[in-house]
Design a protein around this nucleic acid. Structure first.
Lengths: 237, 237
DNA sequence: CTTGGTTTGTGATTTCAATCACAGAATAAA
DNA sequence: TTTATTCTGTGATTGAAATCACAAACCAAG
């Protein structure tokens, strides 16, 4: 059982969470006092698929992956939740059971809000409800894009799309170089894309040969030719 | 330009739409008077990808498909909207542009509500907002399932899953036979699944040989062995 | 009922990705 | 720094689905 996170409890730790940006300072403070705080090590399970959904969860530090185990034993990753992202709004509304397992990708702290507190929050702050709808809408856009790209027949396109997607959340400049610090191992990336790890490796090697990217160790990819990558994401041919 | 639908305008035509089931009779009546009504022939475009999103749309009769054209020229179908379903709630919130083209699959009538009227509706009837969140949540579940199944490596599983999904909306009994009247041609089904039409044909033939289904003409599939179909949807091997 | 355009099934072939197997690289720990 | 373990790249092979090509079946309109 993970430790409680006390470094957070008397601080306005939710200040930076976009979802709550519309709230007044004291409302955030009140909210914080209602939340529980937990700390997880890398690889620990935050919620497990099939459990009763009980809380709305905000990622305060670290990041997590949400996945299901497919019938043939593969791990299909559905979402990556970066810092300040959250999950659980949706299945508090409609489902009893959590639809996927959420696992910490690194040392991670989360704040959780019980179902009733969450419902009160929505009732009292309609702006938060609207922001949740917007966030759900964005997530749906992502799923639709993912679906389109997974329907796509070739792996290059899917990989290029993924790199561009990760660039948004995990891209940064190292000197003049645009680099992505990947949140997942090659195996994880492959599971996210629904392809074999070996295929991913081969394709990335090919991207390197084509001068599009450069792998810097296992977790960093430097983008050398963004235009070409964008082309690939549209059409490989 | 499609004709206006006048058979609907002074009737409580939205009575049967689940989304509005929480509204009082007179609220529905008021709503109806604010809606525009349009009629489309099979194949006509209701909204086109990239247009400015301007209205919330309810399918009153008929059905429609929502799709994007992928860079390699394929049509990737994202949703099928059956009678009484609706679309547009989501992109009124967040996006200026419609993320997919919606096309009538058969003679179809729709009712549309302008952005401002829709916003007023939500403001006055918070229950509708909650039902929209729930509907979005359900659609996300479907997308997540679709994503899992598209990540799945074999086509049999995807096809079996699709048949079971369609059974919910399009299944009916013909005598003792459970039958699905397909909303799409084989080509459409293949585009929905992201596989080649020929592959779909071959697999369906194989399903017939295995005594799982029986194709009755081009648009009806009779399910002979639901248990086997369910097995397939989990794992082919 | 006939007719003509459209949709569908199926054989032959090709292509792309999965799988198996293993060595080399990277990373974390002592 | 060294060592142990996990992660990654790559060759060989297999396998599943895409593609090409065309005939048969379907269905809607006279």
């Amino acid at each position: 059982m993970p430790d409680a996170c006390d470094g957070c409890s008397n601080d306005l730790c939710l200040r930076n969470v976009p979802l709550f940006s519309s709230l007044q300072r004291d409302a955030v403070h009140a909210l914080t006092s209602e939340m529980e705080h937990h700390r997880y090590k890398k690889g620990e399970i935050i919620v497990r698929e099939g459990e009763k959904a009980s809380a709305f969860t905000v990622i305060r530090e670290g990041s997590a992956k949400a996945y299901r185990i497919t019938p043939d034993g593969r791990e299909q990753i559905l979402y990556i939740f970066p810092v300040n992202d959250y999950f659980g709004a949706r299945f508090l509304f409609t489902e009893e059971r959590v639809p996927y397992t959420v696992e910490a990708l690194e040392p991670t702290t989360v704040c959780t809000l019980s179902k009733t507190n969450f419902e009160n929050l929505l009732a009292e702050h309609s702006q938060v409800a609207i922001e949740i709808i917007e966030a759900m809408a964005n997530r749906m856009s992502r799923l639709e894009n993912a679906m389109q790209s997974m329907g796509g027949r070739n792996a290059d396109m899917r990989i290029a799309s993924l790199l561009l997607e990760f660039k948004e959340s995990y891209g940064h400049y190292n000197g003049n170089f645009l680099e992505i610090t990947l949140p997942l191992s090659r195996e994880g990336l492959a599971n996210y894309l629904g392809i074999a790890r070996e295929t991913l490796s081969r394709k990335l090697t090919q991207f390197e040969e084509d001068g599009i990217i450069l792998a810097v160790g296992n977790r960093v990819i430097r983008i050398l030719d963004l235009a070409k990558l964008t082309d690939l994401s549209y059409l490989v041919d």
